[in-house]
Simulated assay, not measured.
Amino acid sequence: MLDIFRGLKSLLKVSPIHIDSPVFRLHYSITVSVLIAFSLIVTTRQYVGNPIDCIHTKEIPEDVFNTFCWIHSTFTVSTNNPEPYARMYLPGSPGIRTTHNDKEKKVYKYYQWVSFCLFFQAILFYTPRWLWKSWEGGKICALMMDLDVAVCSEIEKKQKKKLMIDYLWENLRFHNWWAYRYYFCEVLALVNVVGQMFLMNRFFDGAFLMFGLEVISFINTDQEDRIDPMIQIFPRMTKCTFRKYGHSGDEEKHDALCILPLNVVNEKIYVFLWFWFIILSVLTFLTVVYRIIIIFSPRMRVYLLRIRYRLVRREVIDTIVRRSKMGDWFLFYMLGENVDSLIFRDVLQDLAHKLNRHDFHHAPGFKGEIQEA
């Protein structure tokens, strides 16, 4: 199993150059790695064993019967009886009984598609990252110019700082569209994680949205009265019907009892994913709310720069936020996370000094001058 995770190290590696938020990185690093790892584990017989083993008549080869039941799905028998499963059927095997009513049969077809679904989910989680990386265009890396470490010579440092200040000066107020595209990617990440909850709910016939809560309720219920929600969605024992024609041309029906060892793994995977997606949804929603506040509140932008970069004087931050727009603020914030703190302080101070020496048309706001987004 370590070989599987060793191959995913490249996804878990976070670039030293930060062009996004920590919550956004959870989507494309941790989540994508986990989904791909789960997809590989499900498809690896070394850790799961045979995905299905059926007990049946010896007239049909075992491999043929198992393959047929795996491809054509299996079923359990549902009931409207409110009693706990353990009292209705075989102990630990809900849905295993005889029936001649097809309406009582609950067919399970999803298990062949679990690995593909997990891999598809990983692609969806990486999509916002791919979009932002394309739109960002290496701007942060280009502006850094290796100023994340303050070990270069003073002459080289001054030259690089001058280049950065010149760029910021000449392109001031032209970064809104750049920042809004990143905010769009964060909204897309939120839509993706919430949408995937509903996607999995559809995948499991409407049984996933409340899955985690039902598992918690199951754990806290008395053993005699509780119903295991994991067995309802991921049955470990099912039935399969194989039909063939005999020597005389009559149809022969062979009923088999099938064990699904794979579902023992599947249930653990989706319990984890339910809780992880809920946590990720809440964090991403709070991040989107935070972005909305930043867009409409210049005062919040001033406050965030002050508490994040304490080496920069207050009047410098006030001047820069007054004379710039929201997109510029986002660029400053990202540069501050990547550039050496002392160099970043010098850049902002020189930029503020340059701004104070030139006339700008201001919009009324904080202290009468802070620009709106």
Score class of each variant (00 low, 15 high):
Met1Thr: 01
Leu2Thr: 14
Arg6Glu: 10
Leu11Ser: 01
Leu12Ile: 14
Arg25Val: 10
Arg25Gln: 12
Val34Asp: 12
Leu40Gly: 00
Thr44Cys: 08
Arg45Phe: 07
Ile52Phe: 03
Val64Glu: 04
Thr67Gln: 08
Phe68Gln: 00
Ile71His: 11
Thr76Phe: 02
Thr76Ile: 07
Val77Gly: 02
Asn81Gly: 07
Pro82Val: 04
Tyr89Gln: 04
Leu90Glu: 05
Pro91Lys: 02
Pro91His: 00
Pro91Ala: 01
Ser93Gly: 01
His100Ala: 09
Glu104Pro: 06
Glu104Ser: 01
Tyr108Trp: 03
Trp113Ile: 06
Phe120Gly: 13
Ala122Ile: 04
Tyr126Ile: 11
Trp130Glu: 14
Gly137Cys: 03
Gly138Pro: 14
Asp148Arg: 13
Lys161Gln: 13
Tyr167Lys: 11
Leu168Glu: 11
Glu170His: 11
Asn171Gln: 08
Asn171Ser: 10
Phe174Trp: 08
Asn176Lys: 04
Phe184Lys: 02
Gln196Asp: 12
Phe204Lys: 07
Phe204Tyr: 10
Asp205Glu: 06
Asp205Ser: 09
Ala207Pro: 00
Phe211Ser: 04
Ser217Ile: 00
Asp225Gly: 08
Arg226Val: 01
Pro229Tyr: 14
Gln232Leu: 06
Ile233Val: 10
Ile233Met: 13
Ile233Gly: 07
Arg236Ala: 05
Arg236Met: 03
Met237Gln: 03
Thr238Ser: 02
Gly246Asp: 13
Gly246Glu: 09
His247Glu: 12
Gly249Val: 01
Glu252Ser: 11
Lys253Thr: 15
His254Tyr: 12
Ala256Leu: 00
Ala256Cys: 02
Leu257Met: 09
Leu257Tyr: 10
Cys258Asn: 08
Leu262Asp: 05
Lys268Phe: 09
Val271Pro: 02
Leu273Val: 02
Thr284Arg: 12
Val289Cys: 04
Val289Ser: 03
Tyr290Asn: 13
Ile293His: 08
Ile294Gln: 15
Pro298Ala: 06
Pro298Trp: 04
Leu304Val: 06
Arg308Thr: 13
Arg308Glu: 11
Ile317Gly: 08
Thr319Gln: 13
Arg322Leu: 09
Ser324Ala: 13
Asp328Ala: 05
Leu331Asp: 03
Gly336Cys: 10
Asn338Gly: 07
Asp350Met: 06
Leu351Pro: 04
Ala352Thr: 06
Leu355Glu: 12
Arg357Glu: 14
Phe360Ala: 07
Phe366Pro: 00
Glu369Trp: 07
Gln371Met: 10
Glu372Lys: 13
